[in-house]
Design a protein around this nucleic acid. Structure first.
Lengths: 225, 225
DNA sequence: ATGTGCTTCAAACGTATGTTTCAAACAGAC
DNA sequence: GTCTGTTTGAAACATACGTTTGAAGCACAT
């Protein structure tokens, strides 16, 4: 948690504040005062606020994408020849995320929340940065999904992947708030691992749903007003 | 599309800009210049930026929640006694959203995107506003879901509902961009109705997934490094 | 025409932001 | 110790924001 180097102190503070409040809502002054560092240090070490955002993502995304690649390597090796199943692919992704070495106990949820924010908040510069830095593991994941669901048409698969992304990004991006609600309403504590364990079967079942229902079932239509 | 009244022009512009860029990233000056209205008009007619955000939500959420209530009424009447099925409940919601009278062709995706933002961007004041204004149809929907999935534990159901919300809000909120990609890559046209038709079976299948897998399947674990 | 209540307008206010500046402090090599 | 390149510090910069102000414009009843 506590690095004494200025750069790391800034990254730690920024990561946490970005995850809590989003990018635009977090000012450099909040970051530098939380990091106990001079305001000018951000622009000195990173160049700009946007570059700091990129650095925050790079710090955890680069090791994560390496972990993910090797997880996919091992998975494919174990399946020699046969394409991995949908469940195996989703689990490889989940386990890679969960097993990433964390700087502190909030590590995973910060990680997830930042990924959700990256997708959710428009932030054009961020999306471009992520696309050109991490497109490889992403398209590899897409390829595995395709092999694991040969029964789906390209269009069906496309949309169902979007649904999966949405459920994941959305849930993770508000997971702290959701956990609070759950704690208050049901008196239950939840870890990110448990959320992931609930999410994977949901996604797998949705992905493999039998019918694409192109018209509503009889009797479900509202009468025309 | 084009209302000549100042209040409506502001609401139209704000709605579109908020959906595109989020709340903090949209300034009053952007809104008023898009609406071709004086800057002070927002504070004159609405009182503050936050109150404008509330008004944007109220304008589409109030009629929607009325539509939804009556859809649920009809559904329960048709089922007399028996609880509606999960598919029926989801379809009632979907049809209500799709059939809402829209101000323009982007109506539904703006609507969905705003709902997603309301959940995603922290914006404490918004969450409070929505909770106290629209808790009724929300909890009614939750009640129907509960009756339709008696096999789920409260905690499982809670999380699966979050997953459904996520898949829906996320997909609909970026459906314009997604449709563009689909058109270019696969040469297919897609309507919001068709997306909904693909979404509902996905959600229903995920919601009814058999197992909540609290440990990964054997052989899916990564060897310890 | 005159007065009245509501609406628009240009301008300014105070505050917060990201960024820059330049002198001071520091560390390591000679 | 002195020089050199790097890092920190306090202060200022320019800009953008939400909000407020007070005069001007307008519609309409009297």
């Amino acid at each position: 948690m506590a690095q004494s180097d200025t750069v790391d102190r800034i990254l730690d503070a920024a990561e946490e504040l970005f995850a809590e409040r989003g990018f635009s809502e977090t000012s450099l002054r909040m970051i530098t005062s939380k990091a106990k560092v001079n305001l000018a240090a951000v622009n000195y070490h990173f160049g700009s606020k946007n570059a700091l955002i990129h650095a925050v993502f790079a710090r955890f995304l680069t090791p994560f994408s390496a972990t993910l690649e090797s997880a996919f390597d091992q998975l494919e090796a174990r399946c020699d020849g046969k394409p991995p199943t949908l469940n195996q692919t989703l689990w490889a992704l989940t386990e890679s995320a969960v097993r990433m070495p964390q700087r502190n106990e909030k590590g995973i949820s910060i990680f997830m929340r930042l990924l959700g924010l990256a997708y959710t908040q428009s932030q054009g510069h961020l999306r471009k940065f992520l696309e050109q830095e991490y497109s490889e593991p992403f398209s590899r994941f897409m390829g595995l999904l395709k092999e694991a669901t040969p029964q789906l048409s390209a269009v069906d698969r496309y949309w169902r992947i979007q649904f999966m992304l949405g459920a994941t990004a959305f849930t993770m991006s508000s997971s702290d708030a959701l956990q609070d609600i759950l704690r208050n309403k049901l008196g239950v504590e939840t870890t990110v691992q448990e959320i992931a364990a609930r999410l994977v079967p949901f996604l797998a079942a949705g992905m493999q749903a039998q019918d694409t229902m192109l018209t509503p079932p009889a009797g479900a239509r509202l009468p025309v007003a």
